[in-house]
């Protein structure tokens, strides 16, 4: 088991180093969050829509769209450099490769969603201070479920001739539970409702994330086999 964790940590470290060196996805996703906030601001009529009511939905949509933008490129480096074979013939089990990718993507997508929360709160002048730890927990569970599904399907779409164009068709229908429970809980927490009111949502989000990670870890080997 400790060997497994060490292998996992090694791949995570390698990918994080690559990520922070090239900064491709970091910059693209960060810019996406800020620019989405700018465009959303101008797409809303402040006279008829109260930003407070739509903030949670906008943050979650930014998580989904911006997240997909980044996660879709998870396996590009491997596919371009033909490094995939190297990764697959390495002694690390395939689920460790998948879990490592999930960890790295989680760092990126969770960062994106927290950034989105901050930027939207700043631009739309909404105070999200009430229940901030709860909000951050909900975003974390949502980001984990999202990353687990989209990483698996990023591996699928990278192997097709359509590439990332295919990703939304595959992932969006499956994300509905996450958006419903996540945005619902975030909206209530921002409105200052007690955390106990969204405890049920958090449980479903947790179950969704666990199921998605487990399904991904089991099925990933069938996607990448030679």
């Amino acid at each position: 088991m400790s060997t497994y964790l060490r292998q996992l940590a090694a791949i995570v470290r390698k990918d994080l180093v690559l990520e922070f060196r090239s900064k491709d996805r970091l910059v693209a996703m960060g810019a996406f969050a800020v620019l989405a906030a700018v465009l959303f601001n101008f797409s809303l009529d402040n006279a008829s829509v109260r930003p407070r009511d739509v903030l949670a939905g906008l943050v979650w949509m930014t998580l989904v769209f911006g997240g997909l933008l980044g996660v879709g490129r998870t396996f590009h480096l491997e596919a371009e450099d033909d490094a995939f074979r190297g990764l697959m013939t390495s002694p690390a089990p395939k689920d460790a490769v998948y879990l490592a990718k999930v960890v790295v993507n989680f760092v990126l997508v969770y960062g994106l969603s927290v950034l989105a929360l901050g930027v939207f709160s700043l631009f739309l002048a909404v105070d999200v201070g009430a229940n901030l730890p709860g909000t951050l927990l909900v975003l974390a569970l949502g980001a984990l479920g999202f990353v687990a599904l989209s990483t698996l399907f990023a591996a699928v779409s990278t192997g097709t001739t359509m590439g990332e164009t295919l990703l939304p068709v595959l992932v969006f229908p499956l994300l509905l539970p996450m958006v419903v429970f996540g945005a619902g809980a975030t909206g209530r927490l921002i409105a200052g409702r007690p955390f106990a009111e969204v405890a049920g949502n958090v449980r479903v989000l947790g179950a969704f994330a666990v199921a998605a990670v487990a399904a991904g870890a089991v099925l990933f080997r069938f996607v990448v086999e030679e």
């Binding site: 599904l149 699928v156 192997g159 399904a215 099925l219 069938f222 996607v223 086999e225």
Partner: peptide, 11 residues
């Protein structure tokens, strides 16, 4: 075939 099987299962 493998990809489609994964899609059906996860769905």
């Amino acid at each position: 075939k493998r990809f489609a099987a994964v899609v059906a299962l996860v769905g």
